[in-house]
């Protein structure tokens, strides 16, 4: 580990970029100002989650698009982040996510900072599901925490909050439970989050959507 990681050069969208070898394509792109839609990716995770299925890119010489968060850079690689095949996959994934998203941007406190709004813009598709029938989850909103509100109906199951929760709270309060459409971020026994939470609100900072939001008058730096 003492040896410096060598850098490699690759082409992305016609632009020559450099990245440390072993870096995943997604981070190489983001570091060079090229945005690829992503929700679940976190730099400090040893293994990419690869759950959101949005960061599709096309690589020259490969038959099908590949997720940028799982593919390490290689010298001389020619990458296209705006290929039609890749965008088609990303759009379908995004539309499926939005088909069960309790869309209410005007009254959502993540309005303006929401990753979903950004992705919709980049993919040039609507936030409202058009192709797929809307199927909402109708789960209760958890207001039990003094600092933040958890609305599972706006959750995209990216798992970012689960990861940061584990880093901050040794035992980990948040996690995944149930199966299929019922799958949700929850606590042990589906109890209110307020109970065992340390109120570090790291999960709120990690949330790319409006599922975890600070309550009115509470700042992300507040500690209860």
């Amino acid at each position: 580990m003492t040896k410096d990681k060598e850098t490699v050069m690759l082409t992305m969208n016609g632009q020559t970029i450099t990245a440390k070898s072993g870096t995943k394509l997604l981070w190489a792109a983001l570091d060079n100002g090229i945005y690829i839609p992503n929700l679940c990716a976190m730099r400090d995770k040893p293994e990419p989650e690869a759950a959101c299925r949005l960061c599709w890119v096309e690589i020259e010489g490969r038959q099908s698009p590949i997720t940028a968060c799982t593919e390490p850079v290689a010298a001389g690689m020619v990458v296209n982040t705006t290929g039609e095949k890749a965008l088609k996959l990303a759009r379908t994934g995004f539309e499926l996510l939005m088909a069960s998203h309790a869309l209410d941007c005007a009254r959502c406190s993540a309005n303006g900072s929401c990753e979903l709004q950004k992705i919709a813009k980049v993919l040039k598709c609507s936030l409202k599901p058009k192709r797929f029938r809307q199927l909402l989850r109708g789960l209760p909103v958890d207001e039990s925490n003094p600092l933040f509100t958890y609305d599972p109906n706006k959750c995209v199951l990216c798992g970012r909050c689960v990861w940061v929760c584990r880093k901050h709270v040794k035992s980990g309060v948040l996690g995944f439970a149930h199966r299929g459409f019922e799958r949700r971020i929850t606590t042990f026994g589906d109890e209110p989050i307020g109970k065992d939470c340390l109120n570090c609100s790291a999960c709120v900072k990690a949330c790319p959507t409006g599922a975890l939001t600070m309550k009115d008058g509470k700042k992300k730096t507040d500690i209860a």
Partner: peptide, 11 residues
């Protein structure tokens, strides 16, 4: 974490 056990049990 207890939630992981709960996650497996509910899965």
């Amino acid at each position: 974490p207890a939630i992981d056990v709960y996650g497996v049990v509910t899965f």
